[in-house]
Amino acid sequence: MHHYTFGDRVLSVTIYILLTLLAFSTFYPFWNALAISFNNGLDTSLGGITFWPRKFTLENYNIVFQDKRLLNGFVIALLRTAAGTVLSIICTAIFAYGMTKRELIGRKFYMVFGIITLYFSGGLIPYYLLIKDLGLRDSFWVMVIPGAISVWNMIIFRTFFMGLPAGLDESAKIDGCGHWGTFFRIVLPLSGPVLATLSLFTAVYHWNDWFTPGIYITKQNLLPIQTMLKQILNSNIMTEQMAQLDSAAQGAASRMRGITTKSLSMATMMVATLPIVMVYPFVQKYFVKGVLVGSLKE
């Protein structure tokens, strides 16, 4: 059908080269970190590790998984992601379902009340003082409760619910279901795609958020792994840890095992990204859909 001119060929080849370079430069830092995390630390410091480990070892991961604080950070991050996502999705979906009802008195007011918050916010400092006054500082719940209602997600849920067949509500009413019964027994089971998409984005936010715990939590045992990793990159923990390792008998052992700051932080980074990379292939189709839904409301 098409006949390609010489110019088209040049364009095509250029595009393939540029895209390959882009994909490579995106992939390489990750792959390189992975290779370093599996390589003997002392050997790494000799240089030259690019794609494959030279002296393969699991020792870096061994140290990371034996470090009680890092393990605790991993568990905190999992708990926070699970609690935060479930709470936010349920509360926001209930809110959104109520907002679809025409007979809801004050519906317009509620909508404007919510939408204003998308454009204006009090900013960091008043919010910080509010959290402090609510007594949420140094509490696990500061990572969970403030995200319980998302107006943004409410609008997406609402759009989805309004697209469901209208007859559903009617038949549920005839069967004696109230609003809550209809929501939980009929609407929610039909909302698979939107639930999956919004849960994914909410979960990714919770897993990746290092800043909230960073400013509201000072207790080390409540910090999720991302915030700890930030401290490691600022080499707070790491110097401490190395000092501990270097102390007395352990020092010789660590030198023999060939552990360095770099190899340890790479292994920690891999552990902190692992859940994202693991679920990523399965959820790709959902997030592409999610972006499109999200852009409609913009």
């Binding site: 390189n32 970190a33 991302q226 990159l233 980074m269 902190a272 990204t273």
Partner: peptide, 12 residues
Amino acid sequence: MSWVIVAGFTIS
């Protein structure tokens, strides 16, 4: 990926 990880890559 979180900015922490991306910054880690950049630094590395």
